[in-house]
Structures are given as structure tokens and as C-alpha cells.
Nucleic acid binder design. Structure first.
Lengths: 119, 119
DNA sequence: TTTATATATGAATGATTGCTCATATATTCA
DNA sequence: TGAATATATGAGCAATCATTCATATATAAA
């Protein structure tokens, strides 16, 4: 009875799940990073910074958005340690904190591309 | 004058950026997937499904949430092709569409872990 | 010092979103 | 067929969020 066997394993997996799912606290950091990536403006900022460090004004100019809006978004990215900043002359230059971010973007693109091949 | 050289390269990069940044249309799919990942409930659903396919009721029970809420979230994940479903007896079983998703989660955890080591 | 420039920040606002409640749909069982 | 069970869905609501506007802070230039 292979069908019942499957059912037993399923019940076992189900029981384990309820105990072993990560807690909110454990998942919070990850969810917050995904939240940060779930906004077009922030994604564009990150892609821009992946090419070269940029000042706030340069980013605003590149994305054709207000200085204030970019500054607000940068502060969110900074709080999550996704970017860091340093004064350079009279500007403040932002840069990506590490390259993991781009790897994640690439993985996601891969998912999307594989998806388009379904039909 | 290495300092000026840097400046010239920076200006060039800046100029290229403004032309080569992906369009909203290009980024839309990626941003929507990150939006989906940017919610605790949906992340937990995905983690649960990474262990075994589950019915709507089983997910609701596992996460201790209402059937309606889970159903709503599943429909979002399904629209993005992150999960698929199939009737099995009188239930509908959901499963992850592909394993890329878990790779992305792992990469993100790596970023967080590396981050904690900064001080 | 004064003036100009770059960035940050707080309040207000419109839009989006996740949940609940009520109900519709669909399948199984008697 | 009719009752019971599982899932889906639409409307409503409270909370979150991205942007704007006005203004504060900080550095550089004159």
C-alpha cells in the first residue's frame, strides 16, 4: 500500500513542521530585506550603486526623482546595512555594503527567466 | 593626477548609468517577487511548502491563521508562479514551483549572517 | 562670518496591503 | 439529490508606506 505510506510520511512532515517553522524573530531580518527589495526606487538605487559609488544628488538625477525621496529611501537601505556612506568633499557618497545583494538579484532573474520558458 | 582620473571615470560611469538602467517594465517582475517575499505570512507558507506539499487547511493550521487569509496569500503566490496547486481528493494541495526560491532565501540568510559579524 | 550648496528629517497625504467577515463555488459522502 | 466539507473571493477597514513640501543641519566658498 504505497498510497498509505505516502500519507503517513505526510502526516509526520506536517507534525514536524508545526514545531520547526522558524519564529517571527528569526525571519524578521530576512523579511525586512525582501521588503526593501520590493520597491522599484530602492531596486534602482541598488542597481545604480552596483556600478559606482554615487552621491545623493547623482542618484536623484539618475533616477529623475526628488532629492528628498532618494534621501528617505537611502536611510532605509542604510538602516538595513545594505548601503554605507561617507562624506567626500561636500557630498555624501553611498555604496553597496556587499555583493551578496547582486547575487540575490541574479538568482531572482534566473527564476523569472526559467518561468518564462514554461508554456 | 590619479585623483582626476578617478573623477573622469566616475563621470563616465554616471553618464552610462542614466542610459542603461533597466526600465520599470524590465524590473517589474523582480520587484513583484521581492514584494511577495516581503511578508512574514508568505515566507512561512513558502518555508512550509519547502518541506512537503500541503493543503490550504493544513497551512492555515500550521501557521495558526484563518483559512481565508491563507487562501488570499496563496492566490498571490500562485499568480507569481511561485507555487502551483492540484486537487487531491477533496483538498487542494499546493507545492513550490521550483527550488530557486530556497536558494534565494539561503543567499539572503548568508547576507544577514555576514552582516552580524561586522562590528 | 555670511552665503550657497548638499543632505537629512518631520509632518501630511494618497495609495497599497493584509486581515476579517460574509458568502459563493466546488467536491465528496450519505 | 441534499448535507457536509474545503477552498475561493469580494467588500470593508486599519495599518503601512512612498512621496511631497517645508525646513533643519552641515559643510564649503567667498
Amino acid at each position: 500500500m504505497p498510497e498509505q505510506n505516502f500519507e503517513v510520511e505526510h502526516q509526520q512532515a506536517l507534525h514536524n513542521l508545526k514545531q520547526n517553522l522558524p519564529s517571527d524573530d528569526d525571519l524578521d531580518a530576512m523579511v525586512n530585506i525582501f521588503k526593501a527589495f520590493g520597491d522599484m526606487t530602492r531596486v534602482k538605487i541598488i542597481l545604480a550603486l552596483s556600478e559606482t559609488p554615487l552621491s545623493v544628488g547623482e542618484i536623484a538625477d539618475t533616477l529623475d526623482m526628488s532629492q528628498s525621496s532618494i534621501s528617505h529611501q537611502l536611510s532605509i537601505l542604510k538602516q538595513l546595512n545594505l548601503v554605507s556612506n561617507a562624506r567626500r568633499g561636500r557630498n555624501i557618497h553611498y555604496r553597496l555594503s556587499d555583493q551578496h545583494i547582486l547575487t540575490i538579484f541574479k538568482q531572482t532573474q534566473d527564476h523569472i527567466i526559467e518561468d518564462e520558458n514554461d508554456f
